[in-house]
Design a protein around this nucleic acid. Structure first.
Lengths: 166, 166
DNA sequence: TTGTGGTTTCAAAATATTTTGAAAGATTTG
DNA sequence: CAAATCTTTCAAAATATTTTGAAACCACAA
């Protein structure tokens, strides 16, 4: 496989995976492209390489910045803006974990806590409460796992631990 | 909050969360409904309660069975099929972990391994390989975590461990 | 101030996904 | 076997999401 083939395959694969995770293809491909770019790229570059429109590029670059996954870079003497991805992949993972926790886990925890407190006078209500409690524990686990990623500066301890379960 | 309000809120919340995870709303709501139903439900019941069409119900019930999250139940003397959800939430979590691992992680691991082996004669290629290696380790972590969930019959050990990171 | 080179916005178009519902397919019963 | 009852399928309709591209905007230089 040539380097260009590998590059295409990576960008494509990353885009496909992302859609299964509720992230749109352009954003994922943009991220993939910047991840493997040795130099910061200008908007024109990414439009060119991914064959997407200016608006699309602009919006998704902004979203990626909101996620803390890429940065703007200004080159002295250059008017245009350049973009570079955060290359420390564990930092990327922490960032994603942090955002997903904030956007998805936290609100659900709140709703579950609210719903757990319903009175249990009928069989339906009793069942309902049981399910809510079970879900709380699973969501709590997910929350802890994300926190582990977020907090872990070094990951060897976690690595060691997880071997236990293999 | 009355029980009915709580029920609606749960079904609605679950549906919203699911879409962020690439699962469609009907499927999520069906699952939510069956999770909190004390008795198995017939197709008509779910159509009625969620206000969805027969075809929609049929397809998504089938998908939920493929995921191993619900079961068909035959009642003696009844011609129709009834559906009940797996109520052991940790079993549900294990099932979801298993499926997502199979459908998402495993293929990516394979692609990454393939892409890691590219020759590193240019700076671009060198950078590319670095990124692939980093991603491999992150994806490997995700894989291990899912495995931990899949393998863990009891979760106290994991619970204890994860406290370390709090 | 105006012109130039860039970025952002957003309504409309394109595309993708989900849902519907009617027809075809099963399976049980008389 | 035919009728009754229920399930599945799938093309078309509805809906939701993504992408486009032209206009508005912005910052700087002349």
């Amino acid at each position: 496989m040539t380097f260009d083939e590998a590059k295409d395959k990576f960008i494509h694969t990353w885009g496909t995976l992302a859609t299964q995770w509720g992230i749109n293809r352009s954003m994922a491909q943009l991220h993939a492209l910047l991840l493997i770019a040795p130099q910061p790229l200008a908007t024109e570059d990414v439009m060119e390489q991914l064959q997407i429109s200016r608006g699309n590029a602009s919006m998704n670059l902004r979203d990626l910045m909101d996620w803390g996954l890429i940065y703007k870079q200004l080159k002295p003497g250059e008017r245009r803006e350049f973009f570079m991805a955060e290359k420390d992949i564990w930092k990327v993972a922490r960032q994603v974990a942090k955002e997903r926790r904030r956007r998805e886990i936290t609100p659900v925890v709140e709703v579950l806590n609210e719903l757990k407190m319903i009175s249990t006078d009928t069989p339906e209500a009793k069942e309902f409460q049981r399910v809510m409690e079970g879900l709380s524990s699973v969501v709590g686990f997910a929350d802890n796992t994300l926190n582990a990623v977020i907090k872990a500066e070094e990951n060897w301890l976690m690595g060691q631990f997880l071997k236990v379960f293999r």
